[in-house]
């Protein structure tokens, strides 16, 4: 996997490349074995994407952002009055 590709030539200084759709598709690292996942407290196998579970997790991630936005709204309203 790691060996069959071409090393790019060094072109003149900082050239913006032509777009090559999808050239890096499929270039991901090896997936973690179960034991290493579990060790860190993550599920060992890929879950079937239960939307609820994801949403709960994500809501937690976004909670701080939402609170921040709410705070921003409050500030705006304060100014209006």
């Amino acid at each position: 996997m790691a060996d069959d590709f071409e090393i790019p030539e060094l072109p003149t200084y900082l050239e913006i490349p032509e777009i090559n759709e999808g050239i890096m598709d499929g270039d991901g690292p090896f997936k973690s074995a179960e034991e290493f996942q579990i060790q860190l407290g993550f599920p060992g196998k890929k879950l079937r994407i239960g939307r609820k579970l994801l949403l709960i997790k994500w809501a937690n991630l976004n909670l701080s952002i939402v609170l921040f936005k709410f705070f921003g709204c409050l500030c705006k309203m304060w100014r209006l009055y």
Binding site: K31, A33, L47
Partner: peptide
């Protein structure tokens, strides 16, 4: 969280 972590990091 959905169980697909990267080997190197984990």
């Amino acid at each position: 969280t959905v169980g697909i972590g990267q080997k190197y990091c984990n």
